[in-house]
């Protein structure tokens, strides 16, 4: 564990907590894409399948449970909780996210580190996470102005993988044979997709107004 990865995990945790805070306290999911949340639930479900078979550390297992629990409960809230569901922008959240799942699965079957069931699904979760934010970014463009909590959620979610890139650079130079091209490229693509969001986020943030 290094400071970059810890910062990355904490940033990721913060993004989830900000979203849960928004949904649970003000009972609103305005501006939040249910489709992105569904993709993230699939990402964690396929990435943490090894939670019962390979134990890394208490921290690792705990965080996996947190991410699994929060992603599924956010989907549940947005789908079935009356008050929250009412604030869900169904008409605008129309990105065909299931069209993202199949290509990621095919790509994982073609490009992976080991051809085993767990490893292919783990690789699939990497590819899917790289594009999971797309429905949210499209919804963002359509709803134009979003509230600060949603903006902070997206900012933190984009930032965590950027910190992971620093972690991979650090581990590459400090651990022999630490080479994971698939993870690195997927993580880079994922972070680059946030580029224009970061640009507007900082512009607005500096201007002191909401994110538009």
């Amino acid at each position: 564990m290094n400071i970059f990865r810890l910062a990355g995990d904490m940033t990721h945790l913060a993004s989830v907590l900000v979203l849960l805070l928004k949904i649970h306290t003000i009972k609103s999911c305005a501006g939040v894409s249910l489709r992105t949340q569904e993709l993230y639930a699939i990402v964690f479900a396929t990435r943490y399948l090894d939670i019962f078979t390979s134990f890394v550390s208490v921290y690792n297992t705990f965080m996996k449970l947190v991410f699994l629990g929060s992603s599924f409960s956010i989907v549940w809230y947005m789908r079935y909780h009356k008050a929250v569901h009412r604030t869900y922008d169904r008409e605008q959240d129309t990105f065909r996210h299931w069209f993202l799942v199949l290509p990621c699965l095919v790509l994982a079957l073609l490009i992976h580190e080991k051809f085993t069931f767990l490893e292919v699904l783990w690789t699939f979760s990497l590819y899917l996470e790289a594009v999971a934010i797309l429905p949210q970014l499209v919804l963002l463009q359509r709803t134009r102005n979003i509230d600060n909590l949603t903006g902070q959620y997206i900012f933190l979610l984009g930032g965590y993988r950027g910190l992971y890139i620093l972690n991979w650079i650090y581990r590459y130079f400090t651990e022999p044979h630490f080479v994971h091209w698939i993870t690195w490229i997927a993580g880079l693509v994922q972070t680059l997709l946030y580029a224009d969001f970061f640009y507007y986020y900082f512009l607005r943030f500096i201007g002191g107004r909401g994110v538009e």
């Binding site: 990865r5 995990d9 990721h12 090894d50 390979s54 890394v56 550390s57 690792n60 965080m63 996996k64 991410f67 580190e113 080991k114 783990w122 992971y164 972690n167 993870t183």
Partner: peptide, 10 residues
């Protein structure tokens, strides 16, 4: 030994 490569990251 060729320890099956564990994913130690989240």
């Amino acid at each position: 030994q060729d320890q099956p490569q564990k994913h130690d990251e989240l």
